[in-house]
Amino acid sequence: MQFTESNVDLIHFLVLGAIIFSIGLYGVFSNRKNIIIVFISIELMLLAININLVSFSVFLKDLTGQIFTMFILVIAVAEVAVGLAILVAYYRAKGDIDINKMNQMQG
């Protein structure tokens, strides 16, 4: 892929990544109700980072970044599977997945 004459520059990709990352971040700590949305937000943050990696890989002409992205995707999927499994178990034990009630660690 070559973007030599394109008016889409590296900075545009980075800004897109930063925006998506910020949306994810905001989703994590502004959400006070649903833990599934927290999950989705975390995934969003991971994807934003992937965009960064891929775009750097392209502009630096180094494939390592893109291979790394594949790893991150796989790990993210595994992580989601584990997280959802924990949630299901948690729901079975407590009958509720409201974040506000997950405060047993309170000191």
């Binding site: 971040l25 405060n103 000191g107």
Partner: peptide, 18 residues
């Protein structure tokens, strides 16, 4: 006093991390 930081709420922890 310090133990008040330990609210047990995820979004508080995330905020602190950020």
């Amino acid at each position: 006093h310090i133990s008040r930081f330990q609210s047990g709420l995820i979004y508080n922890y995330v905020l602190v991390m950020v």
